[in-house]
Design a protein around this nucleic acid. Structure first.
Lengths: 217, 217
DNA sequence: TATAAAGCATACCGACTGGTATGGATGTAG
DNA sequence: CTACATCCATACCAGTCGGTATGCTTTATA
């Protein structure tokens, strides 16, 4: 239960069958350990035991536990958010239609591990934002990028007359992101996809309501 | 910075000036420690040092750390959510108007400590839901009660013709709750109220859009 | 006033934590 | 072949963790 399936890590594993180097092994094992236990309770011994790497190697590549945590945020989490939540936004033709499709397919694109463990960004943010400034600035950077990307999509849509004028793109973007994160959080506690579906309905309805054309169907 | 102000604890302190008993002191100190550091990293020694209570007293009232954590959820967190988010719902005359007012006043009703530390329910849920089943069932109980309360308000509003028929009350309730939680989460990472305001705008707009009367203003 | 129970204090334990000191292997440049 | 840096393995450290064993004090009960 504690280990990730192939589906969970396609975005991390190298495409060819080259082995990860030592640093990469440590980084990914640390990501998993932190995702499960949080940063503070993440045990270096666990990470080492699971990789077969020794403590000497770890402290050769990272000066201390905190630096390892920062590297996980910068190189693993940020990369995954980018691939899963930001890049897809650019490929929408009709942004609202695209969004609705993305939301309605969300159930498939999330693995059960994602539901069990929650969004790694959100989990880490909740734990560390008020404790360590280094984590906080890294995490707010990721959030800001995400919010801005959604806002850009909405701005374009409004300029093209696809959504009503009353919508303030950035506020709506933050709200949409909040729904997505809140839904994952609720689903994690429920340990099933029901809450995710409910939020999918609510978000879809919100998107329908801000469209200029009331959306056939 | 780590201690709570009077404004943060009005809901916990006894109304008269009677001292809290030993059990109450432990419980409240544990709540604070857990809110700041999370459950796993919460240190019993810290709790004891801050209260002046000794370890013998602690283990007289609670069999172990986990039981203490459960008691914090049952007796402190659940009570606060009840007072802050559930009970106010019952007193709305026009539910939509009431909601909008509640949301727009949210900036005032949240202290800066709430922003710094985040929603205690959400923080604990993110950390413990996938690790300990005892925490999970307690937390999902609180969430379910909250969602159902909002759904009841929406159902009543729909029956009275105040919101459009297309709204499915429970789904919308879960979505509204997700927005509230997601906004607090984002504000915590940003360490300011901006994100909270943006989500307030988005949520207000959503509420306006599901009203039958397009809402004078 | 005798007795039992509740409430609490002190001292201590083994397990585990992040971190370090040291030395050996391997690669690379001169 | 030498010299030096990179990379990593082993052993160890001081400190903290949650938890326990024991005994003293206070309160309720009879």
């Amino acid at each position: 239960m504690n280990d990730l399936t192939d589906k969970d890590v396609y975005w991390w594993r190298p495409l060819d069958d080259t082995e990860l180097d030592t640093r990469g092994k440590i980084l990914f094992a640390a990501y998993k350990e932190i995702h499960v236990n949080g940063f503070q309770s993440a045990s270096l011994s666990n990470i080492l035991a699971r990789t077969g790497v020794t403590k000497g190697a770890l402290y050769h590549h990272f000066p201390n536990k905190t630096a390892l945590g920062y590297a996980v945020v910068d190189e693993v989490i940020a990369r995954r958010i980018q691939m899963s939540f930001i890049e897809p936004l650019a490929h929408f033709e009709d942004p609202i239609e695209g969004f609705i499709e993305l939301v309605q397919n969300a159930g498939d694109s999330f693995s059960m591990t994602d539901i069990e463990l929650g969004c790694p960004l959100s989990v880490l943010a909740q734990e560390m934002a008020s404790i360590d400034e280094g984590f906080r600035v890294r995490l707010i950077g990721i959030y800001e990028q995400w919010h801005q990307s959604i806002a850009d999509v909405l701005t374009k849509a409004r300029d093209n007359g696809l959504i009503i004028e009353a919508v303030e793109p950035y506020s709506m973007a933050v709200t949409i992101a909040a729904i997505m994160e809140g839904s994952l959080s609720a689903s994690k506690v429920a340990q099933n996809l029901q809450k995710l579906y409910h939020c999918g309905c609510g978000l879809t309805q919100l998107l329908q309501l801000i469209r200029t054309s009331p959306g056939a169907r």
